[in-house]
Design a protein around this nucleic acid. Structure first.
Length: 505
RNA sequence: GGGCCGUUAGCUCAGCCUGGCAGAGCAGGGGCCUUUUAAGCCUUUGGUCGCAGGUUCGAAUCCUGCACGGCCCA
């Protein structure tokens, strides 16, 4: 192990501890209070009139965050994740030897235990006046030092651990030194549990379906491939849960949902990670209008549960997630933003020409559906700051959605957008096996045999549908993006603990 | 895939344009200090300047390639 000067100094301190008979990595810890409990304990005692009280026999533990030595007295802060508390270390209480031991061999970043009395210092800060200080785990590598000061109610940080690459590669160090990052993943956990609670309360059954699939489907995306050696079988990592969940609806579970990871072998960007968290649900006897209501209720519920309000701040915008959300057809929205009415240009060359006439880039090799999805909707997307359902998509790009009655061009499908981000996709599910087979065949013709974004024809899925699939509404949402929204983050990497990074060297 | 930007001490950054002894703050070491909180004061250590080539008497600095990252575009 190659060591920096700082690491060598810390190893020397560790050896000095050992020579003094101190185990720098002891097995057991005597702790009576978490730090937040300790702070509460003194406040409660004071609230009951015990002004100036000391509470003896308190033991706390945590990581050393700051050390200020003034001769024979030292102030330090430790942090255990529940909060931070000041340690008040004096020769008088600790004794000469222990005090020297601390000054010489304890460093920022070490995990320590402190035993003593809860009290307030002259400046009024709750502190542990320590009569014993114990090494719990010596840190060899120095964590980035982050100092803060309150200034007009704002926390001003001096120096920081802010290099994005190193923060993501060494998330442990990022979390250990940046409390704000820790908070993001606490919010994330609360969002996940709020989503589950919302669905559980509405009689949805949480299920788990295969990640390794012999055939991929349910989305237009390129899969990761892998191989089972003993079976000598090629397998794909799922790109969606859709086809497996709808098989369960055939199997008489009226309402199912799954939260898990999808894998898409595509570009990495501030909005895309190759592995991301998806929520899908399917509910028998609902159509896409019902699913819209569930969607707006669920998102508003999550915000209220986690942030205490359905009105959120995102990138300087105030966004109101309260139902009902605006509903507008894709055709209308595209016309308003781009001036192009795709319905009057029903072929790819005509539509491309119309788009170019409006100054929009249009790939000449693209299909009609692609031009609408990437070209027109792509222009609309950043304008959708307040929550919006874009409804009624072209049939060509929606092979699993049920047709819109009396409108051969469209299906009953919506996507929803908040803060300029696409959050999810849903439809009245196609449950007619004959129509479904026809759609698969059309997709095959549209994409050509080698295009991995095409939906391969899933015979088993068709077989399931032939047993009878009740009318149902389905829904999929990128959970990471919802969390970006609720934590005011622009990059998906800030809400995924270990985002994908290219291997170095 | 393309364009632009970045990579210098443990961390955050100067230095590069205009080539000439590698710097600052924090952290670390030594010293003073028994109520501090970005503690303070004195002192001091620490570098594969991302990697590999090239140009030059001389390269952190100029040029080329590569790696990793960021932003924008596809």
């Amino acid at each position: 192990m190659e060591r920096s000067q700082l690491e060598r100094q810390r190893v020397a301190k560790l050896e000095r501890l050992r020579e003094a008979g101190v185990d720098p990595y002891p097995h057991r810890v005597d702790r009576t209070h978490t730090i937040s409990q300790a702070l509460e304990t003194l406040e409660t005692a004071e609230g009951q009139g015990a002004e100036g009280a000391q509470i003896a026999g308190v033991a706390v533990a945590g990581r050393l965050r700051s050390i200020r030595t003034m001769g024979k007295v030292t102030f330090a802060h430790i942090d255990d994740g529940t909060g931070a508390i000041q340690l008040f270390l004096r020769v008088q209480q600790l004794g000469d030897g222990a005090y020297r031991m601390f000054k010489q061999n304890f460093d920022l970043g070490d995990f320590v235990g402190a035993h003593g009395a809860l009290m307030r210092t002259r400046t009024g800060e709750i502190s542990v006046l320590a009569d014993r200080i114990t090494m719990l785990a010596k840190a060899i590598s120095p964590l980035p030092v982050v100092k803060e000061r309150e200034e007009d109610g704002e926390t001003v940080r001096f120096s920081a651990f802010s290099d994005l690459e190193e923060r993501y590669r060494q998330r442990y160090a990022d979390l250990a030194s940046n409390a704000g990052v820790r908070e993001i993943f606490r919010v994330r956990a609360r969002v996940m549990s709020a989503l589950r609670r919302f669905l559980d309360e509405r009689r949805f059954l949480e299920v788990e379906t295969p990640i390794l699939q012999p055939l991929y489907g349910g989305a237009a995306a390129r899969p990761f491939t892998t191989h089972h050696n003993q079976l000598d079988q090629d397998l794909y990592l799922r790109i969606s849960f859709e086809l497996y969940l709808k098989r369960l609806v055939v199997g008489m579970y009226e309402r199912v949902y799954e939260i898990g990871h999808d894998f898409r072998n595509e570009g990495v960007s501030h909005k895309h990670n190759p592995e991301f968290t998806q929520l899908e649900f399917y509910a028998a006897y609902l159509d896409y209008h019902d699913v819209m209501e569930l969607t707006e209720d669920m998102v508003a519920y999550a915000a209220e549960e986690v942030l205490g309000s359905a009105v959120i701040q995102y990138q300087g915008h105030e966004i109101d997630l309260s139902p009902p959300w605006r509903r507008v057809t894709l055709r209308q929205a595209a016309l308003e933003v781009t001036g192009v009415d795709y319905a009057s240009h029903p072929t790819a060359p005509e539509l491309a020409a119309a788009m170019e006439a409006q100054g929009l880039a249009a790939r000449t090799d693209a299909t009609w559906g692609y031009l609408i999805d990437k070209g027109l909707l792509g222009a609309v997307e950043p304008t959708l700051i307040q929550p919006t359902f874009i409804i009624d998509y072209p049939r060509d790009i929606s092979p699993l959605a049920k047709a819109k009655p009396g409108d051969p061009m469209h299906v009953e499908r919506f996507e929803f957008f908040i803060g300029g981000l696409e959050l999810g996709n849903a439809f009245t599910e196609l449950n007619d096996p004959f129509d479904q087979e026809q759609r698969f065949i059309e997709m095959g013709q549209l994409y050509g045999p080698d295009d991995e974004e095409a939906h391969p024809l899933d015979e088993d899925y068709l077989r399931a549908m032939k047993y009878g699939m009740p009318p149902n509404g389905g829904f999929g949402m990128g959970v990471d993006r919802l969390i970006m929204l609720l934590t005011d983050q622009v990059s998906i990497r800030e809400v995924i603990l270990y985002p994908h990074m290219r291997t170095k060297e």
